[in-house]
Amino acid sequence: MSTNTREISATPHDVWAVLADGWLYPLWVVGASRMREVDDDWPAVGARLHHSVGSWPLLLDDETEVVECRPVELLRVHAKAWPSGEAGVTLRLEPLDGGTRTRVTIEEDARSGPGRLVPKPLRDLPLAWRNTETLRRLAFIAERRH
């Protein structure tokens, strides 16, 4: 499991507001390129984001499904990313400085498909880079939404 952490200068509620707005997903998730649909009950358990990955003209339609949700604390999803397979992703929010800042931790690893065949150290390297940028983008949005 690849793990990245970033401290964000926004409250946990502000960070959660970004996570809870499924239409913002391609703005902060590296690799997601466009949204096609967001289930009305996102981010409730079982809700899905219908998105595309890649760059035009090589786009693949995929989806991400919520498997656990504790608002303002935790969001766990299964993200499809074919042809590489499916990933398990967990985002944890921890209040800092009396709740004025947030430590966000993202954990990700391949769950199924060809990505599971790649040795873990080789999977972790690109995931660490990708999720460093993902958390940077999340911070940019959460810190500037006011």
Results as ranks from 00 to 15, higher is better:
G31A: 05
V77W: 00
V104S: 04
A17K: 14
T134L: 07
T100C: 02
A87Q: 07
L135Y: 08
H13T: 15
P83E: 00
D97I: 02
G22E: 03
W16M: 04
E68T: 08
E133L: 13
R34L: 07
D61T: 13
I8H: 08
E94T: 15
L117P: 01
T134H: 05
G85D: 06
P71W: 03
A128S: 13
D39Q: 02
R136H: 08
S52D: 14
S9A: 15
L127H: 06
E94C: 06
S112I: 02
E107W: 05
V118A: 12
A10W: 05
I106V: 15
A79D: 13
H13G: 02
V15F: 02
T90F: 01
G99Q: 07
P57W: 05
E107C: 10
W23S: 14
V29R: 07
R123S: 02
A47Q: 03
V18I: 12
E65F: 01
S52P: 02
V72C: 07
R144V: 03
H13N: 11
G98W: 07
P12E: 01
P43L: 05
H13S: 15
D124Y: 02
V67I: 15
D21K: 14
D61H: 11
L138V: 10
E37Y: 09
F140P: 00
P43F: 06
N131W: 09
D61Q: 10
V29Q: 09
L91N: 07
R145P: 00
T132A: 15
L49K: 04
E65I: 12
E86A: 12
W16H: 04
R136M: 01
A17P: 04
E73G: 02
M35G: 06
L117Y: 12
L60T: 13
N4P: 01
R101Q: 12
L122Y: 10
P83C: 06
R103K: 13
L93Q: 05
A32F: 01
G46R: 10
D61W: 01
A110S: 08
G22I: 05
W56A: 09
W56M: 09
V30H: 01
R48M: 03
G31T: 06
G115N: 02
S33I: 02
E65P: 00
R111W: 01
R70C: 07
V118N: 11
R111I: 12
V29L: 10
P114I: 14
P121S: 12
V45A: 09
A139C: 11
T132S: 14
V45P: 04
V77T: 15
R145A: 15
S2E: 13
T134A: 07
H146W: 08
L49V: 13
T100E: 06
R36W: 03
E143S: 10
V72M: 06
V118I: 15
E7V: 15
G113D: 09
P12K: 10
E68Y: 02
R36N: 14
G113A: 11
L27P: 00
V89M: 09
K80A: 14
L74V: 12
E86P: 00
L91K: 02
G98A: 11
N131C: 11
N131M: 11
A110M: 08
F140L: 08
V30M: 06
D124T: 11
V66F: 10
S84G: 10
A20R: 12
L125D: 11
T100S: 13
F140I: 06
I141E: 08
T5M: 03
T11H: 04
R103T: 08
G46K: 09
W42S: 04
D21I: 04
W42R: 04
G22Y: 05
R6Y: 04
R70G: 08
S52C: 11
R145Q: 15
